[in-house]
């Protein structure tokens, strides 16, 4: 059965945004299909892979498990908002330089999970990085270049 759309107000990447979405739509679907922000990916839509990770009020969340309607009034950060205008976030530069993105499909989710980690812990150990990224599957890299890139970005953020 097709039902009427509802209105959801979000602050997406700093921009106040009003979306009209069917009530059963997840935040993932609202971002990709209604807001046109296709940088957020999906690998399962069941909360298993972490590809759809975004930051909701600063906390990493699986956007496939959250209804858009439940996010009314929230601040959402997606991969499109991670860079500061034309200037890449140090995580983005480190991922690009160190080969941490191969196919790139898990990358937006990993970057946002890592960004949240570095906010709460600017000097994470390797094990803390592994723990923070344990909900984000990557099938290409074997994670090693990702860990290296997070370490390099943390160092750059600390010495800024």
């Amino acid at each position: 059965m097709l039902v009427d759309k509802i209105t959801v107000n979000l602050k997406i990447n700093g921009l106040a945004t009003e979306l009209r979405v069917p009530p059963q739509k997840t935040l993932l679907e609202a971002l990709r299909e209604e807001a046109g922000l296709t940088g957020t990916k999906h690998g399962c839509e069941l909360g298993e892979c972490g590809a759809c990770t975004v930051l909701i009020n600063g906390s990493p969340q699986l956007s496939c498990l959250v209804l858009a309607a439940a996010c009314d009034g929230a601040e959402v950060l997606t991969i499109e908002g991670l860079a500061n205008g034309p200037e890449l976030h140090p995580l983005q530069s480190a991922f690009a330089e160190l080969g941490a993105a191969q196919c790139g499909y898990c990358t937006p989710g990993v970057l946002l999970a890592a960004a949240a980690l570095l906010v709460r812990n600017p000097s994470p150990t390797r094990d803390e990085i592994r723990q923070a990224l344990s909900g984000n599957l990557c099938r290409c890299t074997g994670y090693l270049q990702i860990w290296n890139a997070v370490e390099r970005a943390a160092e750059q953020l600390r010495t800024r």
Binding site: G39, T40, E80, L111
Partner: peptide
């Protein structure tokens, strides 16, 4: 750096 790396880290 791979030539498509920037697109991949920016969601483009």
């Amino acid at each position: 750096r791979k030539i498509d790396a920037i697109d991949k880290v920016t969601g483009r």
